[in-house]
Design a protein around this nucleic acid. Structure first.
Length: 584
RNA sequence: GGUGCGGUAGUUCAGUUGGUUUAGAAUGACGGCCUGUCACGCCGUAGGUCACGGGUUCGAGCCCCGUCCGCACCGCCA
């Protein structure tokens, strides 16, 4: 037996008993006549003590022990004469009688501490060492706990957990596929699933009624702090339900997680139609931890001979509370911020509501004091506030205002990571216009059911069709989304037509699904949550990398094993693949 | 595909306008002293291809060009 206890469990009640522990050496403190060692495992740290009474056979080995050696000790549980209140085992220590070195260790390239001295790339290269650190370890344990809670909740609700294939058919819609060559079918490829979407719909047709899966998904697109090439979805689908049933059941799941893990009882989630979200927050995933809502000013500010405004389709602004004391320099910085090509505003108009009640604006020669006062009233501004106004094309300007709103909020530190403000964004548009390819494409996915009352618009004005689609947003992060699905073959065929598929290509790509619809497909709907984002939110992190055991970097590389890599000529030959890299 | 920031000791960083001859600090490592530490303390030692390649200059860690690598973001991600 390697151990009788873990390094996190011994307390004073075991005083006097003989125990065996195994773990890693966190730290050694030599005080001449005596030595302390902090022994660490997944469960905690227990102090070992060695002194002049320690057997010679043990103490002679002390010198050789270094950080991260793996050792096994047998000793008695003693009460400490000076206790450490900062750790759970701080009242006891192990008086070591026997010591066995199970394995030595090189000195690790960074310190295995709560706050490591290691930089990101080094810690990624030695991920297995980084995972020994308490905060990273706890993230993975949190993830495990959340997966467990989610499974239990859904299974209690009669969901069946069913696996679907990872090797599937490439489909043209959506993200770029990761592709796997088929040796048995030369020249042909599987695709890794972007999500189990079609399979779960087929499971509904098969009559499974309530399905879920904690599924790995793959999308070959560029990465971000919150986007990995492979990520995990809590994938769910239900039959014989309406939108209301889905929202209620999964709101329950999220509340359950917050209650169990954070001991927070969340209020019912507000619901915000997509266009309201854009009007008020300039985003389809608004952060509603703070207000600073967008106010449209088009009518009010036009017609005063300020040419830029007069020529704009839309004028809108936000009120930054307490920023009225911004200096010229700070305002210039904000102007530069919105003019960066990534945001693309042409300029920034401000209205300062000075502490003394006067107004100062970059455009005050076009407006009377009375105008400026009304202007401030529309925003509900107080003395000491700063109003920032952008103008241009409506939807573009709203998005710019939304970005500016987040920038101001982060400058003013309005985003407390211990506060959680979830909401449902509903009534998404069915289609987005794809300028590059000059066609409509599905905003959610091509299987999403349009609102019944908007069906006539499919032929006349697709851009106005609203979908039965919904997203769950928490603190400005899209943590989940789903929709009611099309379950009639003719409507699905029509959808493909609007999306620009010919009858033949729709048949070739999705014939099996439309065929399945002919055999009694029940009405069904579903939702999927991003587990990585959900866990990182519960862990209070902005990046999902630290809730993934072995994540990939910016460029999709695994920095530990340096995947992806080239493969041997033999492998290529078996697959009938010729690599054709661009020259230079 | 694009924008920005960064790369100096094992590690995290400092390094002024291009010029004090030997590129610093902290931490880690190693050696010594120390019987109640828990970020132990004290003394000492070793440790550098200043990412790589080119250029400007009397002189480059510092300026310029290119490459590589990391991070954040835009495009992209139904």
């Amino acid at each position: 037996m390697y151990r009788t206890h873990t390094c996190g469990e011994l307390r004073l009640d075991k005083k006097g008993s003989t125990v065996t522990l195994a773990g890693w050496i966190q730290r050694k403190r030599e005080l001449g006549g005596m030595t302390f060692i902090d022994l660490r495992d997944r469960y905690g740290i227990t102090q070992l003590v060695f002194n002049e009474k320690t057997p010679e056979s043990v103490s002679q080995n002390l010198k050789t022990l270094g950080r991260e050696f793996v050792i096994q000790v047998i000793g008695t549980v003693d009460e400490r004469s000076s206790k450490n209140k900062n750790i759970p085992t701080g009242e006891i220590e192990i008086n070591v009688k026997k010591l066995k070195i199970l394995n030595s260790s090189l000195t690790p390239p960074f310190t295995i501490e709560e706050n490591s001295d290691g930089g990101d790339d080094l810690r990624m290269k030695y991920r297995y060492l980084d995972l020994r650190r308490t905060p990273v370890k706890n993230n993975l344990l949190l993830r495990s706990k959340m997966s467990h809670l989610i499974r239990n909740y859904l299974i209690e609700q009669n969901f069946a957990e069913i696996e679907t294939p990872d090797l599937m058919k490439s489909t043209p819609e959506g993200a770029r596929d990761f592709v796997v060559p088929s040796r048995l079918n030369p020249g042909q490829f599987y695709a890794l699933p972007q999500s189990p979407q079609i399979f779960k719909q087929l499971l509904m047709i098969a009559g499974f009624d309530r399905y879920f899966q904690i599924a790995r998904c793959f999308r070959d697109e560029d990465l971000r702090a919150d986007r990995q090439p492979e990520f995990t979805q809590i994938d769910c689908e239900m039959s014989f339900v309406e939108q209301e049933d889905i929202l209620e059941l999964f709101e329950g799941l999220i509340k359950h997680l917050f209650k169990d893990i954070k001991n927070l009882s969340l209020n019912d989630f507000p619901r915000l139609p997509y266009y309201d979200a854009m009007d008020l927050y300039g985003s389809d995933k608004p952060d509603i931890r703070f207000g600073m809502k967008i106010h449209e000013m088009t009518k009010f500010l036009k017609g005063k001979n300020f040419k830029i405004f007069d020529e704009s389709e839309y004028i809108g602004g936000i009120c930054a509370e307490g920023c009225g004391n911004y200096s010229r320099k700070q305002l210039n910085q904000l102007t530069d911020y919105v003019k960066r090509p990534q945001i693309g505003a042409k300029g920034l108009v401000y209205l300062k509501y000075n502490a003394d009640g006067t107004f100062k604006s970059s455009v005050d020669k076009f407006y009377t004091t009375e105008d400026l006062k009304k202007w401030a009233e529309i925003f509900g501004a107080k003395a000491g506030d700063l109003i920032l106004v952008l103008c241009g094309k409506k939807s573009k300007t709203q998005i710019q205002l939304g970005t500016l709103r987040l920038e101001i909020a982060s400058k003013m530190k309005l985003t407390d990571n211990n506060i959680y403000k979830p909401l449902w964004v509903i009534d998404f548009p069915q289609f987005e216009w794809d300028q590059e390819n000059n066609r409509w494409h599905a905003m959610h996915h091509p299987f999403t059911a349009p609102k019944d009352e908007d069906l006539p618009l499919l032929d006349t004005d697709p851009g106005k069709v609203r979908a039965n689609a919904y997203d769950l947003v928490i603190n400005g992060v899209e943590v989940g989304g789903g929709s009611l699905r099309i379950f009639h073959q003719d409507l699905q065929a029509k959808m493909f037509k609007v999306l620009g598929f010919t009858k033949e290509s729709a048949e070739e790509q999705f014939g099996f699904l439309m065929n399945a619809f002919k055999y009694g497909a029940p009405p069904h709907a579903g939702i999927a949550f991003g587990l990585d984002r959900l866990v990182s939110m519960f862990a209070g992190l902005d990046s999902i990398r630290d809730v993934i055991a072995f994540p990939k970097n910016n460029a999709g590389r695994d920095m530990m094993n340096d995947a992806p890599s080239s493969i041997s000529d033999i492998q290529l030959e078996e697959l009938n693949i010729k690599v054709n890299l661009p020259k230079d």
